[in-house]
């Protein structure tokens, strides 16, 4: 009887747990591994293991004390670039989305279609041309040329603004037009309708778009790697994938510590906004 029950349980539920556990291990092992190794008291990758024998914070301390690895400058650069770019992205995207959603004009549908087509091509595809373009901008206006955060931010703006306008427009379409029609009857101008009615109501989507764009820029490697040459100006993605690769074994503890610091805020953001981000992702924006 007992065996039969167990067998039945296994047939209904048990095998599911078995496979789920298997993939739990697969999913979580590298994450646990890097987390424990970042505080583990051993020298290198050779003698690393999942559960370390001793604990230490020395790897984290090393990150702030090694002048050849300005890790916290990288972190600061990354936040600076990602926040500024994401902010303007949302700001300019909202303006455009308002026009697409609320104003009638000739070529509206054509412009929308252009947006969709353009966003099919990731902006980094033409990185050769972007590189050469900024090569020339460096001559004319060095403050936004190659090697500057300013130039990098501009490129990030160009890359995702079309897509974001599209997403925001989609949300604005769901806001009932009766609201602004009433306002219009009262003689409200376009700008007033935008700033008093539509923009405040669209706030939830704006937050989500901001987070998605922020994560996307934070995780970018290729454009940052092309743009930033000075070690002190690197972003985290460029920094940790450049300085440690020569001596992977010896630097393992520090690699783990820097990975944890770089990944944690994003992971937290992600878990917090998981539903909304996945919604945005379903449309293929950040990764997938």
């Amino acid at each position: 009887m007992e065996t039969y029950k167990l067998f039945n349980w296994f047939k209904e539920y048990g095998w599911r747990h078995l496979f789920a556990l298997l993939f739990v291990i697969f999913a979580i092992y590298p994450i646990l591994f890097v987390a424990t190794n970042s505080v583990a008291d051993f020298a290198n990758l050779t003698n690393s293991k999942l559960i370390p024998d001793g604990f230490t914070l020395k790897h984290y301390k090393l990150l702030s004390s090694n002048p050849l690895v300005p890790y916290y400058s990288w972190l600061f650069n990354t936040y600076k670039v990602a926040i500024i770019a994401a902010f303007f992205n949302v700001f300019l995207g909202t303006l455009a989305a308002f026009a697409f959603s609320r104003l009638q004009f000739r070529g509206r549908r054509a412009s929308l279609l252009t947006l969709v087509i353009v966003q099919m091509f990731p902006s980094f595809l033409a990185f050769v041309a972007i590189y050469l373009l900024f090569f020339q901008i460096s001559d004319v206006a060095p403050i936004m040329g190659l090697g500057t955060h300013f130039g990098l931010i501009l490129v990030y703006l160009g890359g995702s603004i079309g897509f974001n306008s599209w997403l925001i427009k989609g949300f604005m379409d769901t806001i009932s037009p009766s609201l602004d029609e009433a306002a219009k009857v009262d003689g409200a101008t376009e700008y007033q309708i935008f700033s008093k009615i539509i923009a405040p109501l669209a706030r939830p989507i704006l937050v989500v778009i901001f987070v998605i764009t922020f994560i996307g820029i934070y995780s970018d490697y290729i454009l940052a790697a092309i743009f930033l040459k000075d070690k002190n100006l690197w972003t985290v993605a460029v920094g940790i994938n450049t300085v440690f690769v020569d001596d992977f074994n010896a630097d393992w503890g520090v690699i783990a510590a820097s990975s944890v610091i770089a990944a944690t805020p994003i992971a937290v953001l992600f878990v917090f906004f998981q539903k909304q981000i996945t919604g945005g992702l379903t449309a293929g924006s950040v990764k997938g």
């Binding site: 901008i137 004319v140 206006a141 060095p142 403050i143 936004m144 300013f150 501009l154």
Partner: peptide
């Protein structure tokens, strides 16, 4: 900046 201003240049 997109057009390369000199005043902005010097300052920044």
């Amino acid at each position: 900046v997109a057009c390369g201003g000199d005043t902005a240049d010097d300052a920044a």
